[in-house]
Design a protein around this nucleic acid. Structure first.
Lengths: 129, 129
DNA sequence: TTAAGTGTATTATATCACTTAATACACTTA
DNA sequence: TAAGTGTATTAAGTGATATAATACACTTAA
């Protein structure tokens, strides 16, 4: 699978998407799922870059987006830490979910599926899984 | 809105995505929704390019993807026509829906939402709309 | 036969996002 | 003081996207 474990997180990078987006999303996912604790330190830019075999600048870009979303706090000279504010995590998590739902519904609507159609499809899906 | 009507279809292009993908998706959407009839001729490459103010090569690329999906048939010297095979349309429509569902569920799962969570969110969404 | 309108192919150019590389600087801690 | 942090800068390369200009094969109607 080319799966890399670093800092208690799992990473699987490919070329289908920008690398910085994949790093961002996979760290964010770990936070949202609670797989990494609040206040915990994540690997340094250089350490992460070396582990993932990508450029430090690329990791930096991902880390800066995490901080802009207030999911992390950076302390110069110390490192990058997950926020200690559970509300921040909850807020971002629901905002991202809202975006996913909106995009999904728009996409299905553009294919001519109604809300009832979608409910049926998901119900069928849930039944088999 | 910068909405352009051409060949019975509506187009609204922006810079958030490749132009050829937007043209592809918007024609495909018109077909899936039955807004354009089976067997009908769609605008020529040059006509579409002029109407949308984009390059003919860009339109060409969108048209070729439609043909690869067998949603259209091209007749040299005559033009590009929607397939007359309703099954083809149905097949593609369900394939795209399947992809949308899979991506949506994966995205929600990466945020730590369960199938039950998702059902609740969509039910709430349906109720208010 | 001809002219206009089709799809199609080719070559060249330009732009932009992404990624890497190499450095350097400010800060914190041991 | 040395090592490890985040951060900034400059340069270069690559690939996808889009445009431009041109040409060719085919179909249809005048």
């Amino acid at each position: 699978m080319n799966e890399i474990r670093v800092g208690g997180m799992r990473f699987a990078l490919d070329l289908s998407q920008p690398l910085y987006e994949q790093v961002l999303e996979q760290v964010r996912s770990s936070i949202a799922k609670g797989e990494i604790a609040l206040g915990e330190k994540i690997p340094s830019v250089r350490e992460m870059a070396q582990a993932l075999k990508i450029n430090p600048n690329t990791v930096m870009r991902a880390y800066q987006e995490l901080e802009r979303d207030q999911l992390t706090e950076t302390r110069r000279g110390q490192g990058t830490f997950i926020t200690t504010d559970a509300d921040k995590v909850s807020h971002i998590r629901h905002r991202l979910a809202e975006e996913a739902v909106e995009e999904f519904l728009a996409r299905m609507s553009s294919l001519g599926f109604t809300a009832a159609d979608i409910a049926n499809i998901l119900r069928a899906k849930g039944g088999e899984g």
